[in-house]
Nucleic acid binder design. Structure first.
Lengths: 227, 227
DNA sequence: TATATATCGATATTCTTTTATCGATATATA
DNA sequence: TATATATCGATAAAAGAATATCGATATATA
């Protein structure tokens, strides 16, 4: 974790927290928040692990990266732990985002509760459909596509969210990159090309389903005999 | 890969293909399908790797699990490779599914193109909203919740897709399990509890966003000085 | 106060995944 | 036909992640 520089100053890599750990943190958060408030104010890593079907050492290790509130025999104070995880996940100054495409996927995203806790602030949406332009969704204005560059540049939008049909996706992506966006969150099921310095994260429902489907097949016929 | 049984018969584990590999296959498929049809009929693992920003050995290894069409100096026949990947991903008899919740997320899922290729056949939707009941979305009927058990049992629905608000999710999940569903695909951002023999896969947009956000922060300030 | 126990944090081990290396082979070119 | 090269598949090495083990410590109980 971190590495020693010649100056003797320690350089903490953000990377030191693994992708897997970061992905599990929101799950802990969900679980902790759903816990009944009342008499019980503490929880152990073992307890979380059991409830979520994970290994207790793994949970403890994950939590040790974001909190130092764990005490032997006592566990973690639930309130404090929630605070620590949120602090860790949202600490990096909130990222302003612009969303392109106001169709079903775009709206679904907005209806997803609690993005703000993670530091996501969707400023505005853009769409080619003039019937939608001028209206608001969840209090966010919908602009015409022509406004994209202007708004993104002016408001220093860092994340571009793409929820348009496949055939438009690369074009929209290029527009966003030109407008200074530094990360793309892509929901169109196509591979998009960006310059090396732009971050790209694609959500692909087909990937998720492929996993589920394969696991289900495994379950239904756990072993196949060959040769 | 596989293990030797006392009988001398080889038992091929489905598990032998890793989660990561299964998740990458749909990406290869996307990429291959987007390739211009014409003169060039072949592609190398190196080429795919370069285009998708992956390691060429990894791509070759992934592909070797689903295809044996790779030839030195030539690569893979694009058409055949597409066929092989689809065959692998969708081969396990198509899984019939029922979807609960006909809101934005539910509709977004349907609008996602090409699930059929992966063996997903969504039979019907269920919703408590009586205004929706009786209507159709993308040709799929919407039934009232009371019909859930009946329809699931009758049509042997294996996968239940949950796209309802958090507070209903566990209840709906229990209903699905009671109705004989063997796998749950959950889009509500809460942890759901199921019997050990039921598969559960949760999509959590917050997890995805947490990842993107952390990566972006890394990028914006690649190193932080401490001590 | 002494002892037992739940739980933590750290270290060690095992397992999985990724990446590197190398010999084999199909095609192209001299 | 001989040689060069792109590419494959297999094996080996390295990196990374999950799990197991163990000593330390805070609380509860005898």
């Amino acid at each position: 974790m971190g590495r020693e520089l010649s100056s003797g100053v320690r350089c903490v890599d953000y990377k030191s927290v693994s992708v897997q750990t970061i992905s599990r943190l929101p799950k802990y958060l969900n679980y902790l928040k759903a816990l009944p408030k009342g008499e019980v104010t503490n929880i152990s890593a073992t307890g979380i692990a059991e409830a979520l079907g994970l290994n207790d050492v793994q949970v403890r290790k994950d939590l040790s990266l974001v909190s130092d509130g764990g005490r032997p025999k006592v566990g973690y104070a639930i309130e404090d732990l929630i605070y620590d995880i949120e602090e860790f996940l949202g600490s990096d100054a909130s990222h302003t985002a612009g969303r392109v495409g106001a169709g079903n996927v775009g709206r679904a995203l907005l209806s997803y509760s609690g993005f703000a806790e993670y530091g996501l602030d969707i400023l505005a949406a853009f769409d080619v459909d003039l019937a939608l332009v001028g209206r608001e969704i969840n209090g966010k204005p919908i602009f015409p596509m022509e406004k994209l560059s202007e708004v993104c540049a002016q408001r220093q939008v860092k994340i571009g969210i793409i929820t348009v049909p496949n055939y438009e996706a690369q074009h929209v992506c290029d527009l966003l990159v030109q407008s200074g966006v530094q990360a793309i969150w892509n929901f169109a099921p196509v591979h998009l090309t960006v310059p090396a310095d732009v971050l790209m994260q694609s959500e692909n429902m087909a990937c998720s389903f492929a996993l589920l489907s394969k696991h289900l097949s495994e379950k239904l016929k756990p072993a196949r005999l060959s040769k």
